[in-house]
Amino acid sequence: MFKRLMMVALLVIAPLSAATAADQTNPYKLMDEAAQKTFDRLKNEQPQIRANPDYLRTIVDQELLPYVQVKYAGALVLGQYYKSATPAQREAYFAAFREYLKQAYGQALAMYHGQTYQIAPEQPLGDKTIVPIRVTIIDPNGRPPVRLDFQWRKNSQTGNWQAYDMIAEGVSMITTKQNEWGTLLRTKGIDGLTAQLKSISQQKITLEEKK
């Protein structure tokens, strides 16, 4: 169930391209415009997507990853294993993690069937560096609404905000991946996880038929 919630949630996290980005210092504006741009692209490019579902990787690479804190999220997933990894191991892992996100997020976007969304009203940021933004996803086919909290983090150097995690039903996506990959990290280390991520990233994206 959580895996499905995570995939549905990713439908609204794909941010804007650099040329049309919203105010990078306001995570609420980023979330709002990102959702609108993403849904528009999914709707307008269905012919290309249906002809070649792996085209979704391109959308992810162009529109999402430049505005997601990939390395920060990847380091959180590694936890204690990050500090013990060599620079070469980290570089290989982050490259594999990025390719994994292209496949995983692309597969999530393949679930698009006309969903709509509501974003919580903007709250004062103050001096906060981590801000959760509640998004409610509404399914046109009558499924119950899904309420999610996207975690946005302020870059201490640039002042810009980027998304790095999502919490559904009190469970963090980062925590879920830590639990899912924990045994592999304990037995085969970061190299074993890197190899698995490379394998997963090679899987073809498949479209979910409308139910």
Score class of each variant (00 low, 15 high):
residue 44 N to H: 13
residue 167 I to M: 01
residue 143 R to I: 12
residue 211 K to P: 09
residue 85 A to D: 01
residue 129 T to L: 07
residue 205 I to V: 12
residue 199 S to P: 12
residue 29 K to A: 09
residue 173 M to D: 13
residue 193 L to R: 10
residue 96 A to K: 00
residue 110 A to E: 06
residue 137 I to H: 15
residue 187 T to M: 11
residue 195 A to R: 12
residue 25 T to A: 13
residue 208 E to Q: 13
residue 56 L to S: 07
residue 64 L to W: 12
residue 38 T to I: 12
residue 102 K to I: 03
residue 192 G to N: 03
residue 104 A to T: 15
residue 210 K to L: 13
residue 191 D to N: 03
residue 195 A to S: 03
residue 144 P to A: 08
residue 121 P to L: 13
residue 172 S to R: 12
residue 133 I to S: 03
residue 171 V to D: 07
residue 108 A to S: 08
residue 48 Q to N: 07
residue 127 D to P: 01
residue 11 L to D: 00
residue 22 A to Q: 00
residue 105 Y to P: 00
residue 149 D to Y: 06
residue 120 A to E: 05
residue 101 L to P: 06
residue 160 N to D: 10
residue 170 G to Q: 00
residue 85 A to L: 04
residue 91 E to I: 07
residue 23 D to A: 03
residue 168 A to E: 15
residue 157 Q to Y: 00
residue 14 A to W: 04
residue 180 E to V: 14
residue 6 M to G: 05
residue 33 E to I: 00
residue 151 Q to F: 01
residue 97 F to I: 03
residue 25 T to K: 10
residue 211 K to A: 09
residue 206 T to F: 07
residue 16 L to G: 01
residue 26 N to D: 03
residue 77 V to A: 05
residue 36 Q to F: 00
residue 119 I to Q: 15
residue 205 I to Y: 14
residue 113 H to P: 07
residue 193 L to D: 11
residue 96 A to C: 15
residue 179 N to W: 03
residue 147 R to I: 02
residue 94 F to K: 04
residue 93 Y to I: 14
residue 15 P to Y: 08
residue 145 P to G: 12
residue 54 D to E: 10
residue 15 P to S: 03
residue 102 K to Y: 01
residue 20 T to M: 14
residue 98 R to M: 03
residue 143 R to L: 13
residue 82 Y to S: 05
residue 54 D to C: 09
residue 129 T to Q: 10
residue 190 I to C: 11
residue 114 G to D: 14
residue 151 Q to D: 07
residue 194 T to N: 08
residue 157 Q to H: 08
residue 195 A to I: 12
residue 180 E to F: 12
residue 110 A to D: 12
residue 99 E to A: 13
residue 89 Q to Y: 05
residue 43 K to N: 07
residue 196 Q to H: 11
residue 190 I to V: 07
residue 109 L to N: 09
residue 42 L to A: 09
residue 36 Q to G: 10
residue 36 Q to Y: 00
residue 149 D to M: 09
residue 192 G to W: 07
residue 41 R to D: 09
residue 129 T to N: 12
residue 208 E to V: 06
residue 91 E to A: 02
residue 87 P to I: 15
residue 171 V to I: 10
residue 72 Y to L: 11
residue 71 K to S: 04
residue 189 G to V: 09
residue 108 A to F: 08
residue 177 K to C: 13
residue 160 N to S: 09
residue 162 Q to D: 02
residue 127 D to Y: 12
residue 99 E to S: 08
residue 3 K to F: 08
residue 133 I to C: 13
residue 135 V to G: 10
residue 183 T to N: 01
residue 161 W to S: 04
residue 180 E to P: 14
residue 168 A to Y: 11
residue 143 R to P: 06
residue 95 A to Q: 05
residue 141 N to I: 08
residue 124 P to N: 12
residue 116 T to C: 10
residue 64 L to D: 15
residue 66 P to H: 08
residue 173 M to W: 13
residue 182 G to F: 14
residue 54 D to R: 11
residue 32 D to R: 03
residue 158 T to Y: 12
residue 168 A to Q: 06
residue 109 L to M: 02
residue 58 T to P: 04
residue 165 D to M: 10
residue 207 L to A: 12
residue 24 Q to Y: 14
residue 4 R to W: 11
residue 76 L to F: 01
residue 9 A to I: 04
residue 187 T to D: 05
residue 48 Q to W: 10
residue 136 T to G: 05
residue 198 K to G: 09
residue 1 M to A: 04
residue 89 Q to L: 10
residue 21 A to D: 15
residue 108 A to Y: 08
residue 70 V to Q: 02
residue 202 Q to A: 13
residue 142 G to A: 13
residue 103 Q to C: 12
residue 133 I to E: 07
residue 74 G to K: 15
residue 49 I to L: 01
residue 9 A to G: 09
residue 115 Q to G: 10
residue 96 A to T: 09
residue 130 I to K: 10
residue 172 S to N: 05
residue 85 A to I: 15
residue 84 S to W: 05
residue 194 T to W: 11
residue 33 E to G: 10
residue 95 A to D: 07
residue 17 S to A: 02
residue 92 A to G: 04
residue 140 P to E: 07
residue 43 K to E: 08
residue 21 A to I: 15
residue 52 N to Q: 02
residue 38 T to V: 11
residue 196 Q to R: 06
residue 52 N to V: 05
residue 109 L to F: 15
residue 128 K to D: 09
residue 166 M to Y: 09
residue 29 K to D: 01
residue 16 L to C: 12
residue 61 D to V: 01
residue 114 G to L: 12
residue 164 Y to A: 08
residue 82 Y to H: 11
residue 197 L to W: 12
residue 61 D to L: 11
residue 98 R to F: 02
residue 119 I to K: 04
residue 35 A to N: 04
residue 68 V to P: 09
residue 121 P to N: 13
residue 45 E to G: 11
residue 79 G to W: 12
residue 108 A to R: 13
residue 114 G to N: 05
residue 195 A to T: 09
residue 124 P to W: 02
residue 166 M to C: 15
residue 182 G to A: 09
residue 18 A to Y: 01
residue 208 E to K: 10
residue 130 I to N: 02
residue 141 N to S: 14
residue 198 K to S: 10
residue 15 P to I: 01
residue 74 G to W: 02
residue 105 Y to E: 14
residue 37 K to H: 15
residue 65 L to Q: 11
residue 172 S to G: 07
residue 190 I to N: 13
residue 158 T to E: 01
residue 121 P to I: 03
residue 83 K to C: 00
residue 36 Q to W: 14
residue 207 L to W: 09
residue 3 K to V: 04
residue 205 I to E: 08
residue 44 N to L: 02
residue 12 V to M: 09
residue 200 I to S: 10
residue 57 R to P: 10
residue 36 Q to L: 11
residue 102 K to W: 14
residue 205 I to D: 12
residue 205 I to S: 11
residue 50 R to K: 07
residue 68 V to R: 15
residue 163 A to T: 12
residue 159 G to A: 04
residue 113 H to N: 03
residue 15 P to D: 02
residue 200 I to M: 02
residue 79 G to Q: 01
residue 71 K to C: 01
residue 148 L to H: 14
residue 143 R to V: 06
residue 86 T to Q: 02
residue 209 E to F: 14
residue 28 Y to C: 09
residue 189 G to D: 05
residue 28 Y to T: 10
residue 3 K to H: 01
residue 157 Q to A: 09
residue 107 Q to Y: 02
residue 29 K to Y: 09
residue 60 V to K: 07
residue 107 Q to L: 08
residue 96 A to S: 06
residue 172 S to Q: 11
residue 70 V to L: 09
residue 93 Y to P: 06
residue 4 R to H: 03
residue 23 D to Q: 15
residue 112 Y to S: 10
residue 8 V to C: 00
residue 50 R to Y: 14
residue 207 L to C: 12
residue 206 T to V: 09
residue 63 E to G: 11
residue 26 N to Y: 00
residue 163 A to N: 07
residue 197 L to M: 01
residue 108 A to I: 12
residue 32 D to P: 03
residue 75 A to D: 01
residue 49 I to W: 02
residue 79 G to V: 05
residue 126 G to C: 01
residue 38 T to Q: 06
residue 156 S to M: 14
residue 85 A to G: 08
residue 211 K to Y: 09
residue 100 Y to G: 05
residue 163 A to P: 12
residue 170 G to N: 07
residue 151 Q to S: 06
residue 114 G to W: 05
residue 109 L to G: 10
residue 208 E to D: 15
residue 127 D to Q: 10
residue 200 I to A: 04
residue 161 W to P: 12
residue 146 V to I: 03
residue 201 S to A: 07
residue 74 G to C: 08
residue 62 Q to F: 01
residue 73 A to E: 12
residue 194 T to I: 03
residue 73 A to N: 13
residue 153 R to D: 01
residue 112 Y to I: 03
residue 145 P to F: 15
residue 90 R to Q: 08
residue 207 L to M: 06
residue 191 D to A: 08
residue 103 Q to K: 13
residue 165 D to W: 14
residue 137 I to N: 01
residue 207 L to G: 10
residue 27 P to Y: 10
residue 145 P to N: 11
residue 94 F to E: 10
residue 28 Y to S: 04
residue 209 E to K: 01
residue 186 R to W: 08
